[in-house]
């Protein structure tokens, strides 16, 4: 993965914005009587999954010092969440949410391939050790 040590994590920020909008849309879908899907297990599931998306996005946006393996795990879980929420939204015929998940996928790709590195390595490399001792 290409990483930059410094700079703005545009992908993470974009994903955070998208997931917040998705959460609002999911809440409307869940509680807006008359849309055909309100108060169903499906909308509760999507409400939960978009809430998880928001939490995950918050973590990758603001917690920059987490171990690298953890940031990788969160990125992986975010991908699963995006795909799962997208599929559930498709089956709920919640079109806006489907498009938000597509946009979220793009943001995730930006985060993974273009955002600055966010994790700490678990074991310092030889180069880092030299730098620390010089």
């Amino acid at each position: 993965m290409a990483k930059h040590s410094r700079g703005v994590a545009y992908g993470a920020w974009l994903l955070l914005a998208i997931s917040i909008v998705a959460l609002i849309v999911a809440a409307i879908n869940t509680f807006n009587v008359g849309n055909g899907i309100a108060y169903t297990p499906g909308t509760y599931l999507v409400l939960f999954s978009t809430a998880m998306l928001v939490i995950g996005s918050l973590l990758i946006t603001f917690v920059r010092s987490m171990p690298r393996w953890l940031s990788g795990l969160i990125a992986f879980l975010l991908l699963i969440d995006l795909l799962g929420t997208g599929l559930a939204s498709y089956l709920l015929e919640a079109t806006i949410l489907v498009w938000l998940m597509v946009a979220g996928l793009v943001a995730w790709l930006i985060h993974v391939f273009a955002d600055p590195a966010s994790g700490k390595r678990s074991h310092p490399t030889a180069t880092n050790r030299e730098a620390m001792t010089s």
Binding site: I37, P41, G42
Partner: peptide, 8 residues
């Protein structure tokens, strides 16, 4: 068919 809100 709609099951748990999901449309088949």
């Amino acid at each position: 068919v709609q099951k748990h809100g999901f449309y088949m």
